[in-house]
Write a protein that binds this DNA or RNA. Structure first.
Length: 417
RNA sequence: CUGGGUGUAGCGCAGCUUGGCUAGCGCGCUUGCAUGGGGUGCAAGAGGUCGGAGGUUCAAAUCCUCUCACCCAGACCA
């Protein structure tokens, strides 16, 4: 992508009412735009990041046997009456009326769709276990959206639903997904600061698990055992004066944001929708279910909260909108030719490049913008570097740069990814 | 929903207390000249009717009433 054509606008000044770092940086660097409270557009830069996060999640969900499908945002009110969530969730439920007064719900989640759907497919123990997932838009009328992407009314969510013949099988798969979640957060660069956190559970299981990333921008409090590192949330803490795992140590209190959670739903939804299967012994039994969610936009915000400095965002390579940011300073036709060729050749190697070809901007301004946008590798091409048939390469995470021969730049980058 | 705060140009703000010339500033944008490795300099321009509606007044960004929106804290939250 040539930067002169990129659909974005840098804002030099921070809004006085913006509190969270990720909110400020994502807006200022042109990743997102606020349409109204809790509702954002993803500009090209932001959408590239979102799609990278999506790819990481999709890959891992396919690995645990999830089959990808797509369910509608628009849902019939009747299904929500059946589970009583039309009442239980009424504060966050968007409802719309269609022609003839027909009432709809805009889906905040999809148990009310996936369960009746599964009923058309699952009949026998032979059909179990199975799991399906989607990455799709969710709508929740949050009472108070805040902190940019960390709490919003409309967002992409990955939701996986699993179906099992017995508790042991559900328990086993639940752990498989939990491990997969840890992998996802690690791949997004949050491995060290994201804790699988014990939380109180759904109706039929005692516990659920939240995945909490430590950050001051978070709105949750979690407690980490200093002895065994078990993390628990506030409710569990008030039920357990000592660590329920090691019976030992004190807890350390940390602010955190919930980037994912997993539940054993058991029969909570198979009951009202009468989702049953015929077991080996010929008896009809309730299907047991699990559900597993990750909010993609929130994860993106969390990644920025955890990866930034005074100059801007520092994207982990796995989710960065581009891997390389070429900045051409040399104004001669020779310099331009070399930059263009590098730009083309990098792309041929499937390396994503943002090429700053804006020769009317000062070097300093372009460097400042580059830091703000936060692409992992910055490659500067100037008369100075070209005298040595080289370009200058600098990683966003470091503050030292080095010269690399023009001819070996691609292999250098490939070696370091 | 409760409490607090804010709406003036694309962005960030001043002006409002003590109504009064054609509503200012910085950034950005346009044009020209210079500059060319950390938000470059000089000059000349374009752009707003002050969130919205109503009211008071000779006169309203400024005062009053209503209303909408956004932010922060709390409550709430698979």
């Amino acid at each position: 992508m040539k930067q002169s054509k990129l659909f974005y606008r840098i804002n030099k000044s921070k809004g006085s009412n913006i509190e969270s770092v990720s909110h400020d940086l994502l807006i200022r660097a042109g990743y997102i735009d606020q349409l109204m409270a809790g509702v954002y557009s993803f500009l090209p830069l932001g959408f590239l990041v979102l799609k990278n996060i999506e790819s990481i999640i999709r890959k891992n969900m396919l690995e645990v046997g999830g089959q990808e499908l797509l369910m509608p945002v628009l849902q019939p009110k009747e299904n929500w009456v059946k589970t009583n969530r039309i009442e239980a969730e009424k504060e966050i439920l968007f409802r719309v009326e269609g022609n003839g007064g027909k009432e709809y719900v805009l889906g905040p989640t999809h148990e009310e769709v996936v369960t009746p759907l599964a009923k058309k497919i699952i009949f026998s123990y032979r059909d179990l276990p199975l799991s399906v997932f989607q990455i799709q838009d969710k709508l929740r009328d949050e009472l108070r959206p805040k902190s940019g992407l960390l709490r919003v009314k409309e967002f992409w969510m990955k939701d996986l639903y699993s179906f099992h013949a017995n508790q042991a099988d559900l328990d086993k798969y639940y752990e498989v997904v939990a491990n997969s979640y840890e992998k996802i957060f690690k791949e997004c660069g949050l491995g060290k600061i994201t804790y699988r956190t014990l939380a109180s559970g759904g109706s039929f299981s005692k516990y659920s698990d939240e995945f909490q990333m430590i950050t001051d921008a978070g709105e949750d409090l979690i407690y980490i055992c200093k002895k065994c590192s078990l993390a628990i949330n506030k409710e569990i803490k008030s039920e357990n004066p000592v660590c329920p795992n090691c019976k030992g140590g004190e807890f350390e209190e940390k602010k955190a944001v919930e980037v994912g959670n997993i539940f054993k739903l058991a029969t909570k939804y198979s009951n009202p929708f009468d989702l049953k299967f015929t077991d080996r012994d010929g008896e009809d039994k309730n299907v047991l279910m699990g559900c597993y969610g990750i909010g993609l936009g929130r994860l993106m915000g969390a990644i920025v909260e955890a990866n930034n400095d005074a100059n801007g965002i520092i994207w982990p390579k796995s989710v960065a909108p581009f891997l390389v940011h070429i900045i051409l300073l040399d104004k001669t036709s020779n310099g331009k030719e070399i930059a263009e060729k590098l730009y083309q050749n990098l792309q041929k190697e499937d390396i994503k490049v943002l090429y700053d070809d804006r020769q009317d901007k000062s070097a300093g301004e372009r460097f400042a913008e580059s830091d703000l946008i936060g692409i992992p590798y910055r490659v500067v091409i100037s008369e100075k570097t070209l005298e040595k048939k080289s370009v200058e390469i600098k990683e966003r995470v470091s503050n030292s740069e080095k010269l690399v021969k023009v001819s070996s730049l691609i292999s250098y980058i490939k070696k370091n990814v």
